[in-house]
Design a protein around this nucleic acid. Structure first.
Lengths: 153, 153
DNA sequence: CCTAAAAATGATATGATATATCATAATGTG
DNA sequence: CACATTATGATATATCATATCATTTTTAGG
């Protein structure tokens, strides 16, 4: 069984545990994101569908499926890029801290880093003091990757 | 002279120092953002124009002006909300650390907090290690304000 | 001053992202 | 099987943004 299949199976079990179903279409969208090395827009996923399965679902369906996958915490939306990625924690089981996303503002490449809990807690405390709640400790950080940075110089 | 006028004058001097001009239209857009208590979209600024001055510039003009104001560091785009705010540092001269934006994902209200340099430096170091450069230490943090949080509960 | 270049703005078209709404198909349950 | 629920399709439209060319305004040089 491929690694991809293992992840999909795992995701399916997770859905079942929540009383929801990972349908074929939903698996296909999740697969697309898992196989991609970068974040994808909803419309890129429509194109992926056409290439991979020879059918073009209406964008609305893809948005609905993405929304479902986000509810199931299988997919994360990168608001800075208006793109979507498979949640990394579904690819490995051990706890590895809270991921932060570095998004290159130029080429849109996404990297993940993990920063210490103390840093996140400091941030969180400040946020609470201001009368807000962190929606997610997964920060999206607007960056330039070294490659694009060098090109700009 | 009103506080608003003082800020506009200050901004105008700042532009002059860079060899650029804060034209009437640009002043009007900046005023709109300064007078607003929340972030505004480009199209909201078009509406503001109609209300305040009885004319509707094409959205393209507003985008161009926003782009100019961003280059002059007078305006900041909140990518999380696809909206624009006047840079706070133009309203006061003293150094007050690096601002972070808390954006309520529900009502879109924006608050600013300042976190310590050490926290930011930790983050920055992690980012460099991953081969990226922080485009701006002004994080946009996806939150819920207490009001919306209570409503959801 | 007048004119040519440069800068700013207007006008139009279109692309990209996203949601609302109603219709149809698939699935589960008594 | 019949009905309710869930999932997906189809269509229209809202929202955010940029490309491109035309026109107006400003600025310098003669």
């Amino acid at each position: 069984m491929t690694k991809l299949q293992t992840i999909i199976d795992h995701a399916e079990q997770s859905c079942k545990a929540h009383g929801s179903k990972l349908t074929t279409k939903r698996k296909q969208v999740l697969s697309g994101l898992l196989q991609s090395d970068r974040a994808m827009s909803a419309y890129e996923l429509v194109d992926y569908f056409k290439e991979a399965y020879g059918e073009s679902p209406p964008p609305m369906s893809v948005y609905r499926i993405l929304s479902f996958l986000q509810d199931e915490q299988l997919v994360h939306k990168l608001n800075l890029a208006n793109k979507y990625i498979a949640c990394t924690h579904i690819t490995c089981d051990h706890d590895h801290g809270v991921p932060q996303f570095l998004i290159c503002g130029d080429c849109q490449r996404v990297e993940e880093i993990t920063v210490g809990k103390s840093t996140i807690n400091t941030l969180k405390r400040k946020v609470e003091e201001a009368g807000f709640h962190l929606a997610s400790p997964q920060l999206e950080i607007n960056c330039l990757c070294n490659q694009c940075n060098d090109k700009a110089a």
